[in-house]
């Protein structure tokens, strides 16, 4: 039987989840480029998450995340074509004995690269929902070596162990990503876990079910209307523009909701994102699986420093074992444990 119980309500979970949103939003965009003869293309795609108020709720089966809106931002495509140099003249007529006579070569068009930038940032939106269980596992770093609990508690983790673990999680789930981007993504989440070398109980969300609507037509329409509104109101001073937008926002939202129906163009784009670019699977894997393996819902050290001291005495560390998680839906998550 546990001798410690800690309960955290859904409101607190939503506050904690806001930390994850900020981390997702700082994940660097994926950029790539390629050339085929004179044609080239490069793209940059990233995601910004903005959830409705309180996206997390608790059900008897676990933690539910509803309607997480993911805006593709940036979403930039640069198409390039390289037009080769065009010259006239330069031809030569050669007569035996007399030699060659050449026409002067005149460059009438230098080699030119034409780039057509297409910036769709902030227009297309996806939406994500899912159900998760909460798991608890103890993290023991190899870098701790033979350090005693107090030594580990006082020693900053300067190893790259967590970074490498995260890189493995990402690259094994999405092998296509370049290693530099894998490292950049991992680095966004490392600070959430990395501190000292003490063992830690880490609580993660583990997906049971997730659903990604690759192009959320309603949200995308709202984004388009939003940008049109911005353009139409651009002549106004910013303070007045903000007020005008606030007044118009319900109208924009209503139109967006009304248009949440099949749309040929957006369906086409969804197919393009999913089939041609493979973004759908990648994003779903990223949101439903990868980030929740790296981002801790909670964590605490084991043994836990229950009483600190600032006079040079060691902290009082209490071992924490038999950690378990239960959900008391719809109000709270209950963590139980034993202090030994």
């Amino acid at each position: 039987m546990s001798n410690v119980n800690i309960a955290v309500n859904a409101k607190t979970l939503n506050k904690i989840f806001a930390d994850l949103e900020s981390k997702i939003n700082s994940v660097p965009p994926l950029t790539a480029s390629g050339n085929l003869g004179p044609f080239g293309a490069s793209f940059s795609i990233g995601f910004q998450v903005s959830s409705a108020a309180n996206p997390i709720s608790l059900t008897s089966s676990g933690v539910k995340i509803d309607n997480l809106e993911i805006t593709y931002d940036p979403l930039k495509l640069d198409l390039t074509v390289t037009i080769p140099e065009i010259d006239i003249g330069g031809e030569c007529i050669c007569v035996p004995i007399l030699g060659c006579a050449c026409l002067p070569k005149i460059e009438i068009f230098p080699q030119t690269t034409v780039t057509v930038p297409i910036d769709l940032s902030g227009i297309f939106a996806a939406s994500f929902s899912g159900e998760f269980t909460v798991t608890a596992a103890k993290q023991v770093l190899a870098a701790k070596g033979s350090l005693t609990p107090h030594q580990a508690n006082l020693t900053t983790d300067t190893s790259d162990e967590i970074l490498h673990n995260f890189e493995n999680i990402i690259s094994s789930a999405i092998p296509l990503l370049p290693s530099s981007l894998v490292k950049d993504i991992a680095n966004v989440f490392v600070p959430s876990v990395k501190s000292n070398l003490a063992d830690k109980w880490i609580f993660h969300l583990k997906d049971v079910f997730s659903n990604l609507q690759l192009i959320d037509i309603g949200d995308t329409t709202i984004n388009i209307l939003d940008k049109i509104t911005d353009a139409l109101l651009s002549f106004l001073p910013s303070a007045i523009r903000t007020i005008a937008k606030a007044i118009l926002q319900p109208v924009i939202d209503a139109i967006g909701a009304a248009l949440d129906i099949g749309n040929d163009i957006l369906n086409f784009l969804e197919n393009l994102f999913q089939s041609s670019l493979g973004i759908g699977n990648m994003l779903e894997t990223f949101l439903g699986n990868i980030i929740f393996q790296m981002w801790p819902l909670f964590l605490f050290a084991d043994p836990f420093p229950m009483i600190q001291d600032n006079s040079g005495l060691i902290a009082v560390l209490v071992p924490v074992e038999n950690v378990a998680v239960a959900i008391n839906a719809p109000q709270e998550i209950v963590i139980s444990a034993n202090i030994l």
């Binding site: 410690v4 119980n5 800690i6 109000q331």
Partner: peptide, 18 residues
């Protein structure tokens, strides 16, 4: 089961054994 967080956001209980 009554919510432990009915009147707060985070609740903690440590029994005398702990």
């Amino acid at each position: 089961m009554a919510a432990l967080t009915q009147f707060c956001d985070i609740f903690g209980a440590i029994n005398e054994g702990a």
